[in-house]
């Protein structure tokens, strides 16, 4: 149980809260200002899609700007996660690095799509088919990269099941391992969106959108909570 302190407890705590606040802002911009909740159906015609972007054009673009500002939220979060993993990982922190790279690769596809949607809304007087293309590119690059999650989550799983620490003070209790495993398996629903234009398997449907994002919110919240709990413990114990 000889664990070394990697980073200041206060910095880690501040970074988690920054991430949580930024995630909330990002979600509000995307689903509120940009009106992507529920997401538009994947089988809209080019003209309908153009109308979608033309209707509340300025509000939409402001939403894009805000989500671009807040879209970094996974970066500080994955870094604190890496700190917490590294202090428990035995030997050179190889799983920690896998997690850090994996989540940050996802972060690109959280932060990036608003640029594409913003481009779609930038000119509303172009040929509708061009806007349709950007619209589809935006949604598919938002939904399908869920497939990167499993490799990052496997790393979290390894820590959950090999750590030398009591579950009730750990950032990686075993139950979180099973929640993480579920999130990892569900991530495979994302790419199904490439095959369907309507129904529950399309990008606005249950499988690629609602379940993965609901589950991601639960997992993100649970992992944040266990990290904050573990930080309190580490502060108390002076470790």
């Amino acid at each position: 149980m000889d664990v070394k302190r990697f980073a200041s407890i206060r910095s880690q705590r501040v970074l988690i809260w920054i991430s949580l606040v930024a995630a909330t802002i990002y979600g509000s911009a995307l689903f509120g200002l940009m009106g992507f909740l529920p997401p538009p159906h994947a089988d809209l015609s080019a003209d309908q899609v153009l109308a979608l972007y033309a209707e509340h054009n300025v509000r939409f673009l402001v939403g894009c700007i805000i989500s671009l500002i807040a879209g970094f939220f996974l970066l500080p979060w994955s870094t604190v996660l890496a700190c917490q993993m590294a202090r428990l990982e035995k030997g050179w922190p190889i799983w920690t690095l896998i997690q850090w790279m994996g989540i940050n690769l996802i972060a690109i596809f959280i932060w990036g799509p608003p640029i594409i949607w913003g481009t779609a809304a930038f000119s509303v007087d172009r040929a509708p088919e061009l806007t349709l293309l950007l619209h589809e590119l935006g949604f598919l690059s938002f939904i399908t990269p869920l497939t990167v999650f499993p490799i990052a989550l496997v790393a979290v799983l390894v820590i959950c099941f090999t750590k030398d620490e009591a579950d009730n003070v750990s950032a990686f209790p075993r139950w979180l391992g099973y929640l993480t495993a579920w999130q990892a398996v569900q991530s495979f629903g994302g790419p199904v969106a490439l095959l369907f234009k309507s129904g529950i398997f399309s990008w606005s449907g249950l499988i690629p959108f609602w379940l993965p994002f609901l589950l991601f919110s639960v997992w993100f919240g649970a992992q944040s909570w266990t990290m904050l709990r573990a930080l309190r413990h580490q502060e108390r114990e002076g470790i």
Binding site: P173, R174, Y178
Partner: peptide
């Protein structure tokens, strides 16, 4: 197994 695995099992089965 253990209590945690049933979280995963019921999650998957409900899905």
């Amino acid at each position: 197994g253990e209590a945690g695995v049933w979280l995963l099992l019921f999650g998957e089965m409900s899905f």
